[in-house]
Structure formats: C-alpha cells, structure tokens
C-alpha cells in the first residue's frame, strides 16, 4: 500500500467515523434548543462531528487535487521491516492485554517480557529472567502495597493470598 492509498483510506474511514458520531449524537439526545435549559445535550458533539466530517471532506478534496505531500507520495506506507517490528509489538501488546483477563497482569507481564527481551531483542536469559521477575514483583509492591490499587489478576488471584497477608 502506498502512502497515497493510505491517506485516501484513512480520510474515508475518518469521514465514516464522523458520520457515525453525528448519528450517535442524536441517539436519544436533542441537538436543538431546549427551552429554559440551553442547547440540548447532543448539540455540542453533533456540531463537532459535523466539523470533523467537513475537515475530512477537505482532506479528500486536497487528495484528489494532489495538494498534500502524502497524496503525491508513491512510497510504501510501511516497509516490510516496519511491518515486522511494529506488527509484532502490537500483537505482543494485544496478547499482553488479553492475558490479563485470564492469567492476570503479573504473569502476563512476565511472559511479555520473556518474549520481547529474549526472542525479539535477543538478550541473554539471565537479563531476561531477572527483568521478567523484577518487574512484576516491583509493580505488585508499588501498586497493591503503596497505592492500594489492585491490578487485575483473574484466575491467578488465589496465588496472591499469601502476599496479601504480607502487605495488608
């Protein structure tokens, strides 16, 4: 995909998003004037998203006229190398978040670090394991202990009971 195609695609998608938000602003809300209460609660988002749509249409017009630098660029939007490093990172982050719903954030983080440091970064096992252990342990004591913000643990919750006794 060239940068030119990407700009067209994104502008069209953003225009559709704008129309969607315009519709959503009328969903059970008034976009007009409510007597004695001022503008309806849908008015502000409605007109803002109308403005979003207008700015997308201008971008599209400029695309057709080849006025933006992106609309003239026939270079690939992403090189193969970029797709690899960015794509793998996004996928790993996705799995990290997905993991929090099953094995909890602490185990998820440890696995994420092992993958990223050892397999993507090619670092030594010693460094990898040290960080994969130190990061979750440090986070646990900082968030649960000091801030009293429990992070999601999902099915790994029972494993933490002894640790709760330690900090509470």
């Amino acid at each position: 995909m060239t940068v030119r195609t990407a700009e067209l695609l994104v502008a069209v998608l953003l225009a559709i998003l704008s129309i969607g938000i315009m519709f959503k602003s009328t969903d059970g809300l008034t976009i007009g004037w409510v007597p004695d209460a001022g503008p309806g609660s849908g008015a502000w988002p409605f007109w803002l998203s109308a403005g979003m749509l207008a700015s997308c249409l201008v971008t599209l017009a400029r695309w057709f006229l080849r006025q933006t630098p992106e609309s003239r660029s026939e270079e690939p939007f992403m090189t193969a190398e970029t797709v690899q490093i960015v794509g793998i990172t996004i996928a790993a982050l996705f799995l990290l978040l997905l993991g929090t719903h099953f094995i909890g954030i602490y185990f998820s983080i440890a696995l994420f670090l092992i993958f990223y440091l050892r397999f993507l970064g090619g670092h030594s096992w010693i460094l990898t394991l040290f960080l994969a252990l130190a990061a979750p342990i440090g986070l646990f004591f900082f968030f649960e202990g000091a801030l009293i913000i429990p992070l999601p643990k999902a099915y790994s919750e029972p494993l933490f009971y002894p640790l709760y006794d330690l900090i509470y």
Partner: peptide, 11 residues
C-alpha cells in the same frame, strides 16, 4: 538497547 527500554515503557 532499545529492545530493553521499549518493553519496560509498554508495561
């Protein structure tokens, strides 16, 4: 190496 820093920042 950035591959050490990046995952820590993501976390």
């Amino acid at each position: 190496k950035f591959t050490i820093l990046a995952p820590m920042i993501f976390i």
